[in-house]
Design a protein around this nucleic acid. Sequence first.
DNA 1: ATGAATGCAAAGGTTTTGCACCCCC
DNA 2: GGGGGTGCAAAACCTTTGCATTCAT
Lengths: 165, 165
Amino acid sequence: MPKKTLPCGRPAAPAAPHATSARIAEWQQKLRDYLTAQGLKYSEQRWKIAELILSIGRHLDAQGLVDRVKKEHPGIGAATVYRNIKVLCDARILKESLTDSNGRVVYELFDDDHHDHIVCLDCGEIFEFHNDQIEALQNSLVRDMKFKQVKHRHVIYVNCEYAQK
Amino acid sequence: MPKKTLPCGRPAAPAAPHATSARIAEWQQKLRDYLTAQGLKYSEQRWKIAELILSIGRHLDAQGLVDRVKKEHPGIGAATVYRNIKVLCDARILKESLTDSNGRVVYELFDDDHHDHIVCLDCGEIFEFHNDQIEALQNSLVRDMKFKQVKHRHVIYVNCEYAQK
DNA sequence: ATGAATGCAAAGGTTTTGCACCCCC
DNA sequence: GGGGGTGCAAAACCTTTGCATTCAT
């Protein structure tokens, strides 16, 4: 098995196994449950879009998703993709994740454990991090100011030591 | 002097004195110096836009600035505002600051000391914070991953205890 | 006088909306 | 059968660009 490297030269970490078939069935059930609960309807397109996201398992902006869908399922229109991004976020299958260096909102698969992001400005790759101490400091800071934290977005933009400029 | 409250009911902190006339003269000089150094030219419109930003002294997105300029100086076109946002950022009079809850880049006056932001979801107000410990943790985390930090954006979205829902 | 800046309008790109038709429940 | 969903195209937005003109140096 050949050693993978990222576009910037950094050795690639193994990808998370988002798309096992059991996992996919589980997500599909989650979607169906949500739709039923909301009085919404299942559709072929809706699931195809969700499935595509699951199989990609990467950070994507809306336009990127439209392009991917158009490639894999030419029959599905852009409006349908945009409409379904909203639905899938509400269904907690997708979530808004960060703003990339172009100012576009990036989506990722919903998961229950929180993480923040590091964006490599050399290769565009998005890494995740989690730091309990930072989270704790954040919480007490917000509490001291008499606010109630709803969510936060902590993105660190970096260059990469591996990058040959 | 009546006690000010923010839209969400929170008592307002006194605004930073961005726009004293001495301060304005200083910024104007800074702009002139920058323009000269770059072989660019001073213009009435350019300064009027900068002056408006200084006098507002608040966080604004590009469109918000266009609207304000249009209101105060109807003769100035939107393209000029967009072109000058870039110039003013390069001149370190403005800087990109955060992404608001609508995904739009928000600009603020340039200052040398770094801070991050708390966005009140009840009233839209943007607060600033700075925490050395968080910064330090962030730096070592990034260093450990063999990245070089370029910048970061840390935004906490909150509700406000003062808000009556 | 020379090159930069402006205003306007047109073009670009992204996202939303209106509407006729289709399909899931 | 009825209300949601889809596709298409048009509209809405925001931002950039081209070009003739004006202006700063």
